[in-house]
Simulated scan of single mutants.
Amino acid sequence: MIVLTADSASELFAAACQAVLLNGKLAAPRDLTTTEVVGAHLCLTNPRRRLVAVPPIRMINPAFAVAEALWILSGSDAPWIFDFNDNLRQYADDGVLRGAYGPRIRHWDSGVDQLDAVVRKLTVDRQSRQAVVQIFDPARDHRGYRDVPCTLGYRFFIRQGRLVMHTSMRSQDLWLGFPYDIFATTLLHELMAGWLGVEVGEYHHHVDSLHLYAEHAPAAAECLHHEPAITEMEPIAVAWPSLDAVLAQIISGDGNLSDGTPWDTFSRMLTSYRTWKLGERNLARKLAHDTPGPLGAALVAWYQHLTQPALVSPELA
């Protein structure tokens, strides 16, 4: 069991890489060799510092991080997400990711919006212990689909005027999955705090199997020789009744809000990456350069990363 606390996702990622490499044991589910720690509790004290970067070794595609978070929040399993990470297609059954979190969170059993349920629960009873979002569904997830959710669920608590969030995962690929998962979950965490009118508290990430695949272990070890980059996102908020309309506007490509808010930044990120995928590389770079804040800088860095074949992360290129 490992317990780690850090003020930024980058520092937490680097500390987790070190802990897994030092304490992990070999395990090979599906005949894929990993170094694994069974039982990990990772605490992020500042959830707005959600962007993982340990340059030049671990860079992530920030456009995909944004796209996946919005895809989940909107309750979608639509295939537009493949435009931002084509590698996901290999996990689809009949073109659909059967383990997509969005429908489970927003339309459980075709009816329950679990985010709405949490907002209502904690609005009525600020001390409730019943603010739970369930993701793993045995009725679906034992059918043999390629995509089975790694996340079991989320829990929210208001304590001392702050919203504390806990995530439980049966499995976490530290190298490929963690940087994107923590971005999406802490974004939900911050939005939920806004809907409830409280400050953002600590974020807790509980993992049963925290692991590094053999192919990523050398790079994880190399990360230990580089300083994590620490950036903090601007505060983000939207009224709960307006969430779906804002998400639809941004996802559709009609979300050029030009208002300087984080939602405007998200829109610019998606537009730039879609432009990149169309082959208009110079325009995509300009759009990224003109996007303010750490996300814009991260997208510029990602495009630079993609032009260096030896350093490309194949899962997201």
Rank of each mutant, 00 (worst) to 15 (best):
M1Y: 12
V3I: 10
L4N: 02
S10P: 09
F13N: 08
A15W: 01
C17A: 09
L22C: 09
K25W: 00
L32I: 10
L32W: 01
E36P: 00
V37P: 00
V38S: 14
G39N: 12
A40F: 04
H41W: 01
L42A: 01
T45P: 02
P47V: 07
R49G: 06
V52A: 10
P55V: 13
I60C: 10
N61V: 11
A65I: 13
A69T: 10
L70E: 00
I72S: 07
L73C: 05
L73W: 02
D77F: 01
A78P: 01
P79S: 11
D83I: 10
Q90W: 08
Q90D: 11
Y91L: 13
Y91G: 15
D93Y: 06
L97K: 00
R104D: 05
D109E: 14
G111E: 08
V112D: 14
D116K: 09
V124T: 14
Q127D: 06
R129L: 11
A131H: 01
V132S: 11
V133G: 11
Q134E: 12
Q134S: 12
I135F: 06
D137C: 13
P138T: 03
R143P: 05
R143I: 13
Y145W: 08
R146F: 05
R146G: 04
V148R: 02
C150H: 06
G153H: 00
Y154G: 08
F156Y: 08
F157M: 13
I158G: 06
T186K: 13
L187N: 11
L188F: 09
H189R: 05
L191M: 13
G194Q: 08
W195V: 04
L196F: 04
G197M: 09
G197I: 01
G201K: 06
G201Q: 15
H205E: 06
D208Y: 14
H211S: 08
A214L: 06
A217F: 00
A217P: 04
P218N: 12
P218K: 04
A220E: 02
H226D: 01
H226M: 03
I230H: 04
T231A: 11
E234I: 02
P235Q: 09
P235A: 12
A239M: 05
D244M: 12
I250S: 02
I251A: 05
S252G: 09
G253N: 06
G253K: 02
N256S: 10
S258D: 15
P262L: 13
P262Y: 08
T265F: 05
F266K: 12
S272R: 03
S272H: 02
S272G: 10
R274W: 06
T275A: 10
R281V: 11
R285C: 15
R285T: 09
R285V: 07
L287I: 04
H289W: 14
L295N: 08
G296V: 05
A298E: 10
L299C: 14
V300A: 10
A301W: 00
W302E: 09
Q304L: 15
H305M: 15
H305I: 05
L306Y: 03
Q308Y: 04
V312C: 11
S313L: 15
S313A: 15
S313M: 14
P314L: 08
E315Y: 12
E315R: 12
A317F: 04
